[in-house]
Computed example of a mutant assay.
Amino acid sequence: MRYRIPLMGNPGMDLALRAKYIAAFGDACYLSEGGAFNCFYKTPQEACDAGVLVAEVFGAAPYDKNYPACERIAGTENYARQVGPDPAINIVISYEPAPRQTPLVEVDGVPTEVSGPYRNLPELKDLWPGNHFYCYSGMVDGNGDGLTQQAWILQVNRNAHKGDAGVGEIHSDLAGFKWPCTVMNEKCEEVTVECEEPLVLPDPEDPVGTKPNVHHVVPMTDKRSCPWGTNSNKNAAVISAKLNKWLSNKNPPEEEVKRLKAAPAYTP
């Protein structure tokens, strides 16, 4: 349950207007999986403070900000804030269920489904927003032991990258991806540099070193800490722990979605 502010215009269809609202109000605003664009807040006062700015963000005559009181509407969980000389001139802050953010990612302005390289693997029955990759996959290893979804995905990756000696390697599905990261320089000072994702990742069986991660492209939770990305195989990518940490709880970058969608599908 969240407090929704009334917006002007049609930001669900108007990309430029949507960008203006996001620039003004940040993570509170998002496009739902039903196609509606709204801005939700945890407290009525936060919503009232943001709502009074909507007119000028939209480009209309600004609301009057001389009426700071945010008052509950009797008999409801909704609130109102006066924005003009007459008390009837107000904005209503509605208390309602906040829908799930759309899992579609805008790529070149087009809402696009995430469809990574594990898209051809049979899906598990238990798929839901916020679920991890540790459920039983229904598959077994060479010893007949059951595999979690994560272990299965890593095994599929390894099987696809066997060298002449028949030994498989774990390859990053985002090899070459670059992102800003922090390192220590020769003076023991933190500096920002450009990191690049390697091709070959550490063996998950190696007791030393950082394990490769099975990454949710659409993160398990959104920036409001609500369930978001599912444990669908389409939503999986094998990457380094370092890159996974940087991507955690971010809206997926367009470049990431483009790379994974263009990647050849692994054979089950």
Rank of each mutant, 00 (worst) to 15 (best):
I73K: 10
G51K: 03
S172E: 12
E71I: 15
A237H: 03
N251H: 07
M220Y: 10
L247C: 03
T102Q: 02
V107Y: 06
T210R: 07
A160M: 08
L7S: 02
G144S: 01
V193W: 06
S115Y: 12
T43P: 00
K242H: 11
D126A: 15
A88F: 13
A263F: 13
N251K: 05
F40W: 14
C29T: 03
G163T: 03
P204T: 01
Y95K: 06
Q149Y: 06
Q149I: 05
V52K: 06
G109N: 11
D206P: 02
V156R: 09
E123T: 01
A165I: 09
N233Q: 05
K162P: 01
D49R: 01
S115C: 14
T112D: 13
A28E: 01
K187F: 15
T148R: 09
G34Y: 11
E56I: 14
N10D: 14
H216E: 05
A24C: 10
G166K: 08
C181L: 01
P87V: 12
A165F: 15
L247A: 05
G35R: 00
W228Q: 06
N10M: 06
E196W: 07
V54R: 07
C188N: 10
A50V: 03
A263V: 08
V105Q: 02
L174Q: 08
W246E: 03
G84L: 12
D203Y: 04
A88R: 13
C188Y: 13
S137Q: 02
P253D: 10
C188T: 07
L154T: 04
V57W: 04
C48D: 00
M184D: 00
V83G: 08
P97I: 08
G176T: 12
L31Y: 03
N233L: 07
N38L: 05
Q101Y: 07
T267R: 14
P97N: 08
D164H: 11
Y136D: 13
G116N: 08
E77T: 13
Y136R: 10
N249T: 11
L201P: 00
W152I: 01
K162S: 08
F58R: 09
P85R: 09
P87M: 10
P198D: 10
L53K: 12
C48P: 00
P180T: 02
N157S: 14
V214W: 03
G35V: 04
E186W: 12
Y134G: 14
G116A: 13
Y266M: 09
Y63E: 02
C135K: 11
L260G: 05
Y30Q: 01
L174R: 04
G138E: 01
E256N: 03
G116W: 05
M139V: 09
N78M: 13
E256W: 08
L7Q: 03
A16E: 07
E46D: 12
I170H: 02
K187Q: 11
K234Y: 11
P253S: 06
W152E: 04
